[in-house]
């Protein structure tokens, strides 16, 4: 017998496959009209990496959003809100703007080196937020702290920009616009793997995650080792958010809004049930948003990725705030 959750999972798997196929089949050129070699290159080096990046980034950011909302017991937490994405940007900015010589001339640096520095930047900010979370008990105060960290990081990036060469500055600006189309096949394949690993971790720690939603003290009495749990969550969120940011640039709203979309479509609340839904919903939203960016049905170019995601995510966040206010 297929349960309601399984129905959702199958539906989302189907939707992910359909959207992926649309991406792979349709683009700005008709592959059937091209020589085999060119068609093969376009398929393997342009379309497939883009699908893998969108799926990996969407799924990964959605999971990090869920983990952070659970950790802070705050439905408005997410990698972009608490400055985690900004931390990743800071890592990339230091590598590209301050250390321009090390990054080569024609590119920002190798995909893996960018991933590493972005992950370090994200982890650094996460540790800061973690320390702050011990002092600030109010979730709102913590969010404001996260925003301030984000502003501070942005200010540091601006200072780095003012000292940077025009080449590295422009490279950073292009990267900062956000896109799923930046990565090569090898680099793009890393993101879905990271997303799956994050989900494996989530499934392994589902009892801790569930217990944590009841409050830190109750979670401890239920056998959750608080320090270990927090450390692991910092590492998982830092690596996934950092890797996604390094490849795609700063991506807004996916992490914050996707868990809420899942709450709208499913009544399941345990992490065992919601983890696959969040992962697949994140992948679907990212793929759908990227369809609007690419607009293969139109002669004209589509919309910037972060604009599409903001149009989708901002109303959801407003709805969440509205609901919370009414519940109070």
């Amino acid at each position: 017998m297929v349960t309601g959750r399984m129905k959702h999972v199958f539906l989302l798997i189907g939707l992910t496959l359909v959207l992926s196929l649309l991406h792979l089949m349709y683009g700005s050129v008709d592959l059937s009209l091209l020589p085999d070699r060119v068609a093969q290159v376009i398929f393997l080096e342009v379309r497939l990496p883009r699908v893998l990046t969108a799926v990996g980034a969407g799924a990964g950011l959605a999971l990090t959003g869920l983990f952070m909302q659970t950790w802070f017991r705050n439905s408005l937490a997410g990698p972009s809100v608490l400055g985690i994405t900004s931390g990743g940007s800071l890592g990339v900015a230091i590598l590209t703007l301050a250390g321009g010589g090390a990054t080569g001339f024609l590119n920002l640096g190798s995909g893996y080196s960018l991933m590493l520095v972005a992950a370090v930047g994200s982890l650094f900010i996460l540790v800061l937020v973690f320390v702050a979370s011990k002092r600030f008990t109010s979730p709102i105060t913590l969010l404001v702290f996260g925003l301030m960290v984000g502003y501070t990081v942005s200010a540091i990036v601006v200072v780095l920009q003012s000292e940077a060469s025009s080449e590295s500055l422009q490279a950073f600006v292009f990267w900062g616009m956000g896109s799923f189309g930046n990565a090569s096949l090898k680099v793009s394949a890393v993101l879905p793997v990271l997303a799956v690993l994050a989900m494996v971790w989530g499934r392994k720690r589902r009892k801790w995650l569930d217990a944590w939603t009841l409050g830190e003290n109750i979670a401890i009495t239920m056998g959750t080792p608080a320090q270990k749990f927090k450390m692991e969550i910092i590492i998982v969120v830092g690596i996934v958010a950092g890797a996604v940011t390094s490849v795609c640039g700063p991506i807004a709203f996916l992490g914050l809004a996707t868990p809420h979309v899942v709450k709208m479509i499913s009544k399941e609340r345990s992490h065992k049930q919601t983890l696959p839904l969040v992962l697949l919903t994140g992948a679907c939203i990212a793929l759908f948003a990227d369809l609007l960016v690419r607009a293969p049905w139109s002669e004209d170019s589509g919309f910037p990725l972060n604009a599409v995601l903001a149009l989708f995510g901002a109303p959801i966040v407003i709805a969440v705030i509205w609901k919370r206010t009414h519940e109070l």
Binding site: S28, V29, V38, I42, V293, R294
Partner: peptide, 10 residues
Amino acid sequence: PEFDKEKCLA
């Protein structure tokens, strides 16, 4: 918003 790699390859 993006350079069209597909057309460029074509």
